[in-house]
Design a protein around this nucleic acid. Structure first.
Lengths: 226, 226, 226, 226
DNA sequence: TCATAAGCGAGACGGTACGTCCGGTCTTAAA
DNA sequence: TTTAAGACCGGACGTACCGTCTCGCTTATGA
């Protein structure tokens, strides 16, 4: 993203240092771990990266933009290994997403840049394109697999309809995990993931009745049917 | 909350001004609207409230604590009017919660103090006791009504089980609305509320099939059954 | 001078620290000695004085104003001990003025603030009122003594005439000493002072003829007559 | 001076552009007029000259050296037209020197480089050889003419004695004019030049008595004898 | 009743970080 | 090799807030 505004491969004068780019983003993540968002300063990042402040400001206009780029790559590491069933896939993504949110650099950074973005339209777009919208690929992948398995009906002919459903599921899964982790501040463990998945797949009735036992670990491995 | 640390009803010397308390909280909300979180300063609040900075710091140790108290009262204004059905109640709370999150003072403040709280245990507790946990009353009320109507089975004899379910539903509803509003940055309108409620009540299958039409306004008023 | 803008002895709020004033001016002089003008920084002065930069800027808007006030007091230490004759008085003031200009804090500061003042009218006035005009007292004192001794005719009845003459003598003496010391960069010693005084008192002819021997030290002590 | 460090008339590779030299010195003078010394930057000079900063630093190591070279040429333009008498010659040089000091590029530059030179021996020598010592030619010329006219006795056989007198007169004339112009900040006009010359030629007594009327313009043209 | 204790507005205090600017060096491609 | 362009590191700039402090003053008791 930092390099996105280079109009041509070689303009004139000395080109920007790619090593500096890397060092800055690494230093930003390290500083986030040590200091959190509010005590993170541009000076500190520059110092840790062995770079002058001007070099930093040449690339990123504000702390929030720098942090978005620094943590975006971590979200891209999320994957959706095939668990063999829709339930297993949902539980898997819930657990791996919550593991990501437990990392200090992501949890402090994510909420902070979102807060910043409420009064900064450009930042809002940057967050969505660099972090949020990219993760919908996980929902799309899980949905496609479930359709192949016959667990879900094939795509509607209406593309808008499909997008609406994907967005909805994305907001519900991501929102629930974020809220549990960072707002309610309680652990997203196998048990919670199981009950959440039940609610998602079967609705409120299924979790309100006392008949949703947490399966044995062995049982989970084979994957429960929907 | 500001007064919570008074050791006895009346110490000695001049008592603290209640008018100052009010003026400060009002000024904080107004400044949040105008400036957002990151440009909000203690000096600005003091100036707007017509109060010295010392008066402010005598009551709140940090910007984040002040803001928590200032916006907490707004969350307490959330209510759950009886919509006649579980579906109507859920849609109602979704829409009124999202309306609250559209207010500039809440949306900028909520994410910011949550971000702050990731590196501040005391603040985390303050947020939970002043804002988050209080809203579970809405889930409890809706659930009780639904049980009275027979839409949900009565409480399990296991209190832990009940708390688990209430927490889960709370995280799913609140998380989905917050994510939709502040992260995906898309509107929580009647249509979205309807589809979300369908997902919550009936599970993934119900929203994936093309048979979940948004009812007419009139139809919604009478409330759809589960 | 720094305190000159206090409208009343005690306005409101915490009064400014007189100790800080003193520490800053002392630190400025010390830093001038160690660093010279161009490497002198506000940060360095603040650090040496054990004072925050804000405290500095609250009193002085710019480095040049600070330095003017810091060195002005040194110029006020110049005195004109009665040497018994006009010649002795002139030689005395030449030597003590040149001694002052040999001090590193004055020689680096004086030219620098004068340079600054060429593009800053306010600074120009500050320099004149704080440093330059005050030294005319030396010319006035020497002139009065010489008149008492009968070495010079009494004041003209025309005040403008008197001021004109005083200004002229002041510019010639101060200018010659400054030029010799700082521009030509050669020493102002007893010998130079003697010949300069001869020129001043008797005119060009007296120094151009080879009949102006430097008197013995003993002879100078008793003071040569004009 | 800029070219003084060329080891041989034609090194190897592309020769330095003489046009760049001229453009840089012109730009320096122009920038001095517009900005004064302290706001003059190397970048600004480079930009105005249409030259890269490297080209500038290849020729001058520091701002002060560049400025010395840029203004030195202006001082070389001073001349001493024969006024017919020693008095006329002195008044003439006083007025033309003060006219030079009224130019913004000289007045701001001269004091600034002198200030800089108080902590920089190399610069001090550069200033003396490029600017100061060259002007003694004016004193020498005036003195020679006066000797030819019989207004002054012929040179002493002692060369040191002669140099001492020339230096003294130079410091007195230049110092007085600089001090009047830049320190006292008052005009060097015909009247001041007349009284100063009287003091220089006849000594203090001549200006202290009320008998030194400013001659009519016509009278001055013919030139008063000493 | 009046001393005492705490509150109050004001604003100076020592700090820290800001984002900008400049100095002087280095690295490109072109000449 | 020099040139123009411009990125690089370093560091000072002057400003803005932070949270604390020191003032003179006010307001309620409780001795």
């Amino acid at each position: 993203m930092a390099a996105a505004d280079r109009p041509c491969p070689q303009r004139r004068g000395r080109p920007r240092s790619a090593a500096a780019d890397r060092a800055i983003l690494d230093a930003t993540r390290a500083a986030l771990v040590d200091l959190g968002w509010s005590r993170l300063t541009m000076s500190e990042v520059a110092h840790r990266a062995g770079v002058a402040k001007t070099t930093l400001y040449r690339r990123w206009a504000a702390k929030s933009e720098l942090v978005v780029d620094a943590v975006a790559v971590l979200f891209d590491e999320l994957e959706l290994p095939d668990g063999g069933s829709l339930r297993a896939d949902v539980e898997g993504v819930v657990l791996s997403f919550s593991a990501l949110l437990r990392r200090p650099e992501t949890k402090t950074a994510l909420m902070a840049v979102l807060a910043e973005s409420t009064t900064d339209e450009a930042l809002r777009q940057r967050i969505r394109s660099a972090i949020v919208d990219r993760q919908k690929r996980l929902v799309l992948a899980g949905r496609a697999r479930a359709q192949q398995r016959g667990e879900l009906p094939p795509d509607s002919s209406d593309d808008g309809e499909t997008a609406r459903v994907v967005d909805l599921i994305f907001d519900v899964i991501a929102g629930a995990v974020v809220h549990r982790s960072l707002v309610s501040d309680r652990p997203v463990d196998r048990s919670w993931a199981h009950h959440f998945t039940t609610l998602l797949l079967e609705g409120l009735g299924a979790v309100s009745s006392p008949s949703d036992p947490l399966p044995e670990r062995a049982a989970q491995k084979t994957g429960g049917s929907v």
